[in-house]
Design a protein around this nucleic acid. Structure first.
Length: 589
RNA sequence: CGGGGUGUAGCGCAGUCCGGUUAGCGCACCUGCUUUGGGAGCAGGGGGUCGUCGGUUCGAAUCCGACCACCCCGACCA
């Protein structure tokens, strides 16, 4: 590609609202342009890099038996109604009506369509197992797109769907993906870790997320250095601290004016936060007997812990959870700021597992300005449910080995779900087994956000000057900077190298523009092609061309006759480095 | 959805408080000449519904109102 023809434009200054490095640089280097909030155009440089990412994905999917298909972006709402997700998912789903007022859905994911295909194609156990995938546009009307390509509303996702006769088959395909995903990310040069995760709107049993560790990440991960336990904080468990046991003491009311927070309470009474109980008031939307209804929930965790709303949502199988309003709190007989389960009526009391084993806690008196000493779960109030509700925190004991957990931020670049039969049952995806029985196909679902992956790579590989692409995903392999404005030896040699390197199978970008040397060098650094050749009269006089790797400062003068071979070898070496990263990974359930 | 912020040329900004020539600067873009190993020099030029609608006024980028868009924090979400 000649830079003079490239449909792009580098920018000296980035847009003011680009706050993360990948966004700023992809914009400045002319890879992307934003059309609307969370909606981007991918210009040729980005398209080429995405193509390479997609090629790697296709190769790895083929490696585990995947067959590529294409499923539509627009779906009739019927299939989403059949699985219930039309009703369960809120504003995140794009909905519209076609000209005959039929409800339509913009695809957020393709479990429904896959299950539809299963219902049409799979009749017998002899046709299973299967693995299909596609690389397709998704629409999720995220309440808050941000960080450039990291979090967008319209995006390209590789999603694959495994189809099996039973859970053992699913387990096999799941583990195949587990490994293939590491292969994909390593080949892209990106280090990731797999963490156990919540199943969220997908449903199902087991799920892992692939996380690129970086402080710009929006997910918090709890990691154990000792035993490699790794989980999203949304579901992370931890070892319960040992609590000194004591005889329950009598309830006692104390005056605690202007003491609405745990911190104020511990200061006033001179006690540790672990000796207090915290009441959190929420309203859960529950689905019971096909009817939606709101249930007031009083969650109790110890004062030194934090409520994990995902855990509570899952424990209640709630559709939605929101903070309660003050009038709702008063309606059950509780007092905001001085709340506790004592003498409340009409609330579902859900208690964290650490609370019943912690005697004589200080809790609110449900009366403004007063707390109660020596509150004991089971004696002073009856919980409706005792479950793990507390969020793991940095330093908490690893649930497996007890070593202190570390909290890190990460970006989710992929996920894998063991779905089961939810979708196939809903859409008639049944097969006949060897005994002639009708059984639903067991599904797994596996996603990778292609654009997000690219952004994470950009985030990991850049410096002050610009992007520094790993060769496997770089839009070009070599960038030839021709330091010549008019026809002459330099331009002639640059053109010859462009031809010969292209013939040698490399993707070559030739800067043939009439720009100054400085402009060309800076643009080359910004775009971040891994290898650079500088063809100018100065070196050419001595029969030399300058070679430089983007990631290194060192420059090398190479004799004209050896240039092509030198570049080919250098690119091969870079490719080899990335391939060497791929290897078997131990599966961690 | 709650809180905060910003909308003036492709990008970055000034002008808005205190209404008053033809709305300005840098970069980018076009033409010509010069220059050519790290964001060049000179000369000339093109490009604006000042986010939108409404109001106040002799007069609105500027004051008032509503709306819209975008960004950040939170809620939410994969």
């Amino acid at each position: 590609m000649r830079m003079s023809q490239l449909f792009s434009q580098t920018l000296r200054e980035a847009a003011a609202d680009a706050d993360v490095a990948s966004h700023r640089l992809l914009l400045r280097a002319g890879f992307i342009r934003q059309l609307a909030s969370g909606i981007f155009c991918y210009l040729p440089l980005a398209r080429r890099a995405m193509d390479r990412v997609e090629t790697i994905i296709r190769e790895e999917m083929a490696g585990i038996g995947g067959q590529e298909i294409t499923m539509p972006v627009v779906h009739p709402a019927d299939i989403w109604k059949a699985t219930g997700r039309w009703y369960e998912i809120g504003t995140e789903m794009g909905r519209f009506q076609d000209k005959s007022n039929r409800d339509m859905v913009l695809a957020m994911t393709h479990e429904e369509v896959t299950a539809f295909l299963v219902s049409r194609l799979i009749k017998s156990y002899r046709q299973l197992p299967q693995l299909v995938y596609h690389i397709q546009t998704k629409w999720r009307d995220d309440p808050r797109p941000r960080s450039g390509l990291i979090r967008v509303r319209e995006f390209t996702m590789k999603d694959s769907y495994s189809l099996d006769t039973d859970w053992d088959g699913l387990e096999k395909q799941y583990r195949a993906h587990y490994q293939a995903y590491f292969n994909i990310f390593e080949r892209c040069g990106l280090d990731t870790i797999a963490v156990k995760s919540d199943v969220g709107m997908m449903g199902g049993r087991v799920a892992h997320e692939y996380m690129y560790l970086n402080s710009i990440g929006e997910d918090t991960l709890m990691l154990c250095d000792q035993c490699q336990y790794a989980a999203n904080r949304q579901i992370a468990t931890f070892r319960q601290p040992v609590v000194p046991q004591a005889q329950p003491a009598p309830l006692e009311k104390v005056s605690t004016p202007d003491t609405q927070t745990i911190e104020e309470l511990t200061r006033l009474l001179g006690i540790p936060a672990s000796a207090t109980a915290k009441a959190v008031f929420l309203v859960a939307r529950l689905l019971r007997d096909g009817e939606e209804r709101d249930q007031f929930v009083l969650a109790v965790v110890r004062g030194d812990m934090e409520l994990n709303e995902t855990k509570l949502t899952n424990a209640l199988q709630a559709r939605e959870l929101r903070p309660a309003h003050e009038d709702e709190i008063r309606a059950v007989g509780a007092e905001p700021g001085y709340g506790s389960p004592l003498r409340v009526q009409g609330a579902m009391v859900v208690v964290d597992a650490a609370v019943p084993s912690s005697p004589n806690l200080v809790a609110g008196a449900n009366e403004s300005g007063y707390h109660m000493l020596n509150v004991n779960c089971g004696r002073d109030y009856e919980p409706d449910l005792v479950v793990d509700l507390a969020a793991a925190q940095e330093g908490d004991g690893c649930p497996v080995c007890g070593a202190p957990l570390r909290a890190r931020r990460g970006v989710e670049v992929g996920n894998i779900f063991q779905l089961g039969t939810k979708y196939t049952e809903a859409l008639g995806g049944y097969f006949l087994d060897a005994a002639g029985a009708n059984r639903p196909v067991v599904m797994g679902s596996y996603g990778i956000g292609v654009g997000r992956l690219l952004a994470c790579i950009a985030e990991e590989y850049h410096d002050d000057q610009g992007l520094v692409w790993p060769v496997s995903v770089a839009p070009f392999d070599v960038h030839i900077v021709a330091l010549a404005r008019k026809p002459g030896p330099a331009l002639q040699e640059a053109e010859r190298l462009y031809r010969e390197l292209t013939e040698a199978g490399l993707a070559v970008l030739l800067d043939d523009r009439g720009e100054n040397a400085g402009v060309k060098f800076n643009d080359a650094d910004l775009i971040g092609v891994p290898a650079r050749l500088t063809v100018g009269d100065r070196s050419l006089k001595n029969g030399l061309v300058e070679f430089k790797l983007r990631r290194e400062d060192e420059r090398l003068e190479v004799p004209l006759a050896e240039v092509v071979q030198h570049v080919v070898q250098a690119v091969d070496r870079l490719r080899g480095e990335l391939l060497a990263r791929v290897g078997p990974v131990e599966y961690r359930a």
